[in-house]
Amino acid sequence: MPAAKRLKEQLGFSALAVLTCLAIVPVLAIVGMLAWKGWPALTWEFLTQPPRKFLTQGGIFPAIVGTLGLTTGTILIALPLGIGTAIYLVEYAGKNIFTRVIRLAIINLAGVPSVVYGLFGLGLFVLTLKLGRSLAAGALTLGFLTLPIIISTAEEALLAVPDDYRHASLALGATKWQTIRRIVLPAALPSMITGAILGISRAAGETAPIMFTAAAIYIPSLPSSVRDQVMALPYHLYAVATEVPNVPDHMAFGAALVLLAIVSGMNLIAVAIRTRMRLKRMR
């Protein structure tokens, strides 16, 4: 290779390497700072005790429970609805104006800012359906926020299943539903689950949708039903950062670290599920 060409090649690679490093820097900085400042707060008491003295002492247990509760609710609402919609759109619905409008609507929904979902949830679930500010209203709002992502990723996953499989199954005398149930879904499931968990973990960290519909700043007790208001980590962070005076720094960073751990944990689970299911099918 001529020297000039080699130089260009090296410059190109170096530039790309530098850009990659730059992309990683903010992630490392955030995680590093949270770990550095929040680590001292992570005691057993902090994780398992309710807050005391208006968040300035005690732990964040109710916020952890609230976030996990909201997340579970989101899964229960968004997963069946989203996967069901995707199956209908890909496997059953014809390619006509009606389905194109639905697809367009879903794509647009994915671009709606989360605070709009919050206000929508306030209007529909909290006020009109009289659920009040509650775990149920928050989970519904987060569910709808997540729905477009779940539908799109599930659609992609279904479309990625080769038609060869469908035809083979139909030609063996399987019904359409048997084909979907036994061939298409198992093949699409790993990517579906991955997409769903990534969407839901994003919802778990949202503040705006729950601040009008579910979250409260200070509830030392745990919710006893889905009609109860809950604490939640993202809103708790918002509160300790802007609303509540005299919260020790390490407690705020500790809570942020816990939220980050929950969200990353979910993402790790998504990756693990996908890897496991792939390996299982290839063995």
């Binding site: 080769p162 060869d164 499989y165 035809h167 083979a168 139909l170 030609a171 063996l172 399987a174 019904t175």
Partner: peptide, 20 residues
């Protein structure tokens, strides 16, 4: 057609075993 295809089976151009 489902019952029919049980009687009249089909082998395709490209081998298409299921991923199982």
């Amino acid at each position: 057609p489902v019952a029919l295809r049980k009687k009249v089976g089909m082998v395709f151009q490209k081998p298409n075993p299921f991923p199982m």
